[in-house]
Design a protein around this nucleic acid. Structure first.
Lengths: 338, 338
DNA sequence: TTGAAAGCGCTACCAA
DNA sequence: TTGGTAGCGCTTTCAA
């Protein structure tokens, strides 16, 4: 192994007895190069362990070979899946992943703009960046909104939320005949949650009912669910069903209530959204909606990587109702795992 | 707002009526510039919205202004905290964060080497990269091993695992008089877990006891804990205490056992490690060890950002035993949260 | 098919 | 203090 540290095209060209142009052509497989030459240079490149410098390349090619991912902050399986799905796809394409957590920072929009100057494309989680900034960015580089929609003609990829949540809620209303449902989650926090809240309301409307309460605002983490549980317990009376904006919250609520001796689903029904691993493993297993998180992220990455060659799309991936025990159904559709 | 798209130093210099050198000097605050000149250029820069191109800068300055973070794959609060702590520190320093998940990929070492060519420094989670590769990388750029130690003189930052786990185990053995303890976690998976397993064994040795079982191997996620719980239930007899390698596993075991009607801590004692948020919120609250995850990550970032100006350190951050209900103690040291 | 040379946008050296 | 200019390492015309 020779020291690839100070090996430049020029040095490489000298060692191979060719011009820098040829080295570049061979390495990149561009232009016309005679087979004989190609072999010779290729060998020399391998022998000396030459690897072109990313900075020089970036400057000359006016690309960064880097894709950015902006999300609110992360904990829990949802973002984990998201990042992994995204990263896997990007790395396979020889590009790199820049990440930025906006996590409630006031100046996050600025930071996103700053990041935009270092990447070739930007994936932005719905609700993390203002429409204004989004529009400005989209004029500069390819932008895809993940789990949400952008203003104007900005590409976006999201899962179907509204109908799924409507179906789930309708299931509770009609099959189980429940009436007193609460929704846990903050509709103004993200487009996903907003759509789920709307689905919840639509189901009520279609059943000629009015949801009795405003949503119970809570962030999306498991611990927020636990907090909600203890709030509910303090109030004294539980609703008939607790429809959570996502699985993590639902798991938190579940743990909180079970710990207090409440029986689920006998005393209260709980449902989630996402179908994370844990959802199928807890007792009672969580009735929820499956959304293809990794696929969402992977598709976002793919779209950004080929951006330019295709017009911005607005994709909507299907979701699937997963009925388990926590809604009161007899065990059905459980997800066995090795 | 003018279009900062095609604004270069040269163009900027022309517009300001000065040389490119002066623009560069003013923008970077380097060299000697008269106050009058500085003001004039600064104004012009602001007026035209000039921002130097990262690629040009990187090439000329031979820096990337980017720090890399390598970890196995992520889910759960531990990695969430880690990434956020890291990212916050790096972004504050005007640098960017590259991430790479090795997640069990066979060729991950190669990818880490590839990433190393795009960053100025590398933070590597213990156990994700081979010592060989680590050594090779450390010859090229600053490397810090996070939650583990590297070979040779490579910098590292980790939390105290062994003594904390020894103390925790001793607490179970002496205060609660338990004898039949099992350890859940894979010591060969990461240095952290390996040290905790050793602490578990040390406590037994010091009490003149032999741990009755090999560790129950399990990955670190909550769902893995659930699996362990159902395995244990199938076996028929439970141990007296289940000492988990981390909180997430412990929470999974807890949920799994509670769901099956097992009482904790009456029927079996469960403990964790990390003290994630959920640990203090479940019922019974989890006895665990607090480790400063964010601080670990932030310190890693800081060390990399100032690398070169300081010799590689090997830091060990203190941990703290957190006694709660799940070990059988009366509620103590709970962590109230707003 | 190959090579010479002109940049890509910036920093930093050396003169003035 | 300021400006001209030589690279940083690479890609890509344009000639040969």
């Amino acid at each position: 192994m020779s020291n690839s540290n100070r090996m430049t095209v020029r040095e490489m060209a000298r060692l191979a007895g060719v011009s820098v142009a040829t080295v570049s052509r061979v390495f990149n497989g561009t232009g016309q190069v005679s087979e004989e030459m190609r072999q010779r240079v290729l060998e020399s490149i391998k022998a000396h362990g030459y690897q072109p410098d990313h900075r020089g390349r970036a400057l000359a090619a006016r690309r960064h070979n880097t894709i950015g991912l902006v999300f609110p902050g992360l904990a829990g399986p949802y973002f984990g899946e998201l990042i992994q799905g995204f990263e896997l796809e990007v790395v396979q394409s020889q590009a790199a992943v820049h990440i930025l957590c906006t996590h409630m920072r006031r100046d996050s929009d600025e930071q996103v703009v700053e990041m935009a100057r270092r990447v070739d494309g930007l994936a932005v989680l719905g609700g993390t960046v203002s429409d204004d900034t989004l529009r400005r960015l989209a004029g500069t580089l390819p932008v895809v909104v993940l789990a949400g929609t952008g203003p104007g003609a900005i590409a976006s990829i999201r899962a179907e939320n509204h109908d799924a949540m409507r179906d789930l809620t309708t299931h509770l209303l009609t099959v189980h005949g429940l009436r007193d449902l609460i929704f846990v989650g903050s509709p103004d926090g993200s487009p996903d949650i907003s759509e789920r809240w709307e689905g919840f309301r639509t189901a009520h409307r279609e059943a000629c009912l009015t949801p009795r309460r405003r949503p119970v605002r809570a962030a999306l983490r498991q611990e927020d669910g636990v907090q909600v549980a203890s709030q509910l317990l303090k109030r004294g009376t539980l609703p008939q069903a607790i429809v959570c904006a996502n699985d993590e919250t639902a798991l938190g609520v579940l743990v909180g209530l079970l710990g207090a001796g409440v029986r689920v689903p006998e005393d209260v029904v709980i449902t989630g959204f996402d179908d994370v691993q844990m959802a199928g493993l807890v007792a009672p297993a969580l009735t929820t909606v499956r959304q293809p998180i990794r696929e969402l992220a992977a598709e976002t990455a793919r779209q950004l990587l080929r951006a330019g060659s295709t017009p911005p799309e607005n994709r909507l991936l299907p979701t699937e109702l997963v009925i388990r025990r926590s809604c009161g159904c007899a065990s059905a559709g459980s997800t066995p795992d090795p």
